[in-house]
Design a protein around this nucleic acid. Sequence first.
DNA 1: AAGTGGTCTAGACCACAAG
DNA 2: TTGTGGTCTAGACCACTTT
Lengths: 241, 241
Amino acid sequence: MSEADRAPAFRPLYRQVREALIQRLIDGAWTPGMMLPSEFQIAAELGVSQGTVRKALDAMAAEHLLVRRQGRGTFVALPEEGRILFQFFRLAADDGTRLFPESQVIERQREAAGAAAEMLQIEASAEVWRIGRIRRLGGRPVIAEEIVLPLARFASLAEFPDLPNNVYALYSEHFAITIGRAVERLKATAADEATAAQLGCPVGHPILSIERVAFALDGTPVEWRVSRCLTDGFHYQADLR
Amino acid sequence: MSEADRAPAFRPLYRQVREALIQRLIDGAWTPGMMLPSEFQIAAELGVSQGTVRKALDAMAAEHLLVRRQGRGTFVALPEEGRILFQFFRLAADDGTRLFPESQVIERQREAAGAAAEMLQIEASAEVWRIGRIRRLGGRPVIAEEIVLPLARFASLAEFPDLPNNVYALYSEHFAITIGRAVERLKATAADEATAAQLGCPVGHPILSIERVAFALDGTPVEWRVSRCLTDGFHYQADLR
DNA sequence: AAGTGGTCTAGACCACAAG
DNA sequence: TTGTGGTCTAGACCACTTT
């Protein structure tokens, strides 16, 4: 953390601290659920003041990377935790209750990336997993989902025949990949024959199509997915501030 | 800012400062575009330290209520400013460029609130304005929008026969209402006859339906709207963090 | 040169959780 | 009682903009 570090394009100390700490998450030195050293310990270790460490930790907590609990300590966020769980899942029933449908994998294959290559920033010839799954609420299929993952980062995925509802917990636990950010594009489309068959609705039925690219902590894209959702009885919720 | 203020349910000083400053925005003592006094001046006036004022100002800037510019000062945010403008408008072309379609009012009437009463937290018998407008991109209609406003807060709306593209700038300038937050519910629906006629698409065509409730700074709902959007060539974008 | 926000530090004290 | 994060303060200095 030398003075020279900020010479070329001034980067505040607390920014550098934040990046150093994020690197520990990327490296796996700090794993989900782990309690971090106290602010004073981190400060002493990095040779900065406690206030500077606090500013870095606060920023990371705002990004949902850490969870701070007064009186207890600072912890690496778990993908299982409530607010994290729904951070990336914004469907809710029309009465306001949050939903988390059950998942059933119906298809999984290795293939060339093709069209997904651009989204995942890999070669079109690179291999990917393509996973199709149906998600149900009370037995009724409501989402038909297609997930594409680069084989290079998910080599041992074959060991997991049935995906859990929350795949980001799987990514974290078994592939040491933490999703830090995602971008979604929503469109209204008409159900094609395949989707209609999967969701049990008429061909041409209105479908909310959600296309998502999810990024790892280092900023590289690691997942591309399309969710085709029925939206009677529930909706996609967005809070604008 | 006495010590007793925090006695019942401890509220940090910087929170109280933030609320006091937001009250100045609500009261209109500070108006959009205005430069605020310096941190030290505000601190002296409120009898707190400069650091505490800073924390309140930073929070308000994060809420897009203020804009801070190093070396220049802190300013009340203008609804016209770029990032504010698109804070509440999330449609983008598929190539990533942001869109802001032109608006044409096609209908406006006074009526009883009816179904909108619950959303706007007013009596069902209270009067509202109901405004229908079409929004176009390059002449092509892409959004059919219905906006409901409580008459009580927008009494003189009749003076503005043609709404501007950015109605939130109008609310701010002529009704002293700043929108601080909004909640949107998205669904995929099929175009009914009225919508199909307005958008020039077949009946049954997939429509992205966006229902929004917008809230003023004091937390009360002031606008209810439904936007029915075509989504070929563009999409609704959401960033998840 | 003057005035603003931005960073960094150091220390005191408060609120909360756990042993 | 101890240890943690949370608040508040005071002061020095840096970066940016305008005069």
